[in-house]
């Protein structure tokens, strides 16, 4: 009871009971202790001498990054185009696989709750758990360096993302609209395309554009492991300590990502 009576008879109000208060404080204490212990662990693995001159290093880095070598941008248009291609084609491929997968995974559309659904969920989880950069690492070993590995890496990571959000949307549809079409004598495939697809269409388009936006960002770093795009130039510039070029790459990435975010926000706004 948060309200109690003091010995002198006046009622007292507290937000929580003393016990709950204690528990909350204890919870915070545990959290802080955990964070401190973890930090301790990290700090043991850190050469603090390097960290102390980080401001100097940082200033030094900035000094070397400026002035940017703007004419380097001329060599970046093709890699930038490749980056956008990797993101877009990868997203398209992921949609082509992820959308049917979502229908197999959703409770109300799966052909078999006992067999197909768990299988689809495993595929979704495996795809989601592994970062596209790791997929790229693996694919570069298999397929050799290049954009193909990048496109597939983006697609493999996005399949799970798109399928998960889409199957959640499918499970939230209005069942009476589906029931009504079933009652007309429509076949299962017709009920799917006439009753369920129109209902999830906005969610589907929103998810796709959202993922495309994320993929642009992801595609900028795939080059670090050799999977094509502007990351290759970034890797090369860093390895040769060509910091003025790195600045140009950063600016270009920032502009591209902001533009894609603006575009995806516009499209999503129009859909909803």
């Amino acid at each position: 009871m948060p309200i109690s009576t003091a010995p002198d008879g006046t009622p007292l109000w507290r937000r929580r009971t003393p016990r709950a208060d204690l528990l909350v404080w204890f919870g915070w204490l545990c959290g802080v202790a955990l964070a401190v212990a973890c930090f301790q662990f990290i700090s043991e693995r850190t050469i603090w001498a390097f960290v102390w001159d980080a401001p100097q290093q940082g200033a030094d880095l900035v000094g070397r990054m400026f002035p940017p070598r703007w004419d380097y941008a001329n060599q970046l248009w093709k890699p930038l185009w490749d980056t956008i291609n990797i993101a877009t084609l990868g997203t398209a491929l992921a949609v082509a696989i992820g959308a049917p997968l979502a229908f197999l995974a959703a409770h109300n559309t799966t052909p078999s709750v006992a067999l197909v659904r768990p299988l689809a969920l495993v595929v979704i989880v495996a795809s989601r758990s592994i970062n596209s950069l790791i997929w790229a690492l693996v694919l570069v070993i298999i397929l050799g360096p290049g954009e193909l590995a990048g496109i597939l890496a983006i697609a493999l990571r996005s399949i799970g993302f798109i399928a998960k959000l889409l199957y959640e949307a499918i499970e939230e549809i209005d069942p009476t609209q589906v029931e009504a079409l079933t009652a007309t004598g429509a076949s299962g495939a017709q009920v799917l395309t006439w009753g369920i697809v129109p209902q999830v269409m906005p969610a589907f388009a929103g998810i796709t554009v959202f993922r495309w936006d994320i993929n642009i960002r992801e595609a900028t770093v795939l080059g670090l492991v050799g999977a094509g795009g502007i990351g290759m130039q970034l890797e090369a510039s860093i390895n040769t300590l060509a910091w003025p070029q790195v600045t140009v790459i950063f600016v270009l990435i920032l502009a591209t990502v902001l533009a894609s975010e603006w575009l995806s926000a516009r499209v999503r706004h129009r859909i909803i």
Partner: peptide, 30 residues
């Protein structure tokens, strides 16, 4: 057999994002 039994629902149960015409035509799906 369901084609011979038309059903009408409490909350209308139209497919909201389809046009009126498409909803009417959906009676012919069977």
């Amino acid at each position: 057999a369901r084609r011979r039994m038309g059903m009408i629902f409490q909350e209308y149960a139209l497919v909201e994002r389809l046009s009126v015409m498409e909803n009417v035509l959906s009676g012919r799906l069977g």
